[in-house]
Amino acid sequence: MNWITDEDTDRDTLLGRLPGVGAPYRALFDTLWQQTHIPPAVLELCRLRMAQLHRSSTDQQQAAWPVDQRQRQALRQWPDARVFTEAERACLAFTEIYAIDALSITDEQAQAVVRHYGDAGLVALIQALGVFDGMQRLGLIWHTSLPEASHG
């Protein structure tokens, strides 16, 4: 039950209640999957990892883009799992430090992404992380997303 309108609604419904801002916000989210610089499946892994870090159960259960189920299941243990490519690892490492403290991102972590996806790929990833982070926090603060009891 969200506390703003006292209804059992999801995040998208609440975004739609203020279309002047919610519609362009949703449009930006949708556009991320149409850019050509980072594969959408890699973005989805990053979105899911961020949802784990935010402990948003609802965002972890959603699927914005199809990903390999073995990767999805191994995501919490990605540093030790063998199902991720070097490019995916670079993006997941960047996602983690972005979620914890963007000021702490190192040039090496940024360059690791650039090596695989170029400057435009790094920009696309950073833009996507900003949208994922904002959307997931919205769901949590509105109480339209269920928080996870444990894990990180």
């Binding site: 801002v21 950073i126 833009q127």
Partner: peptide, 20 residues
Amino acid sequence: LHLSMAVAYFCGASRCAVAL
């Protein structure tokens, strides 16, 4: 709703500037 969405957007935009 306006306040929430504005803060969510600003959060991403500001972190984007830092990360770049």
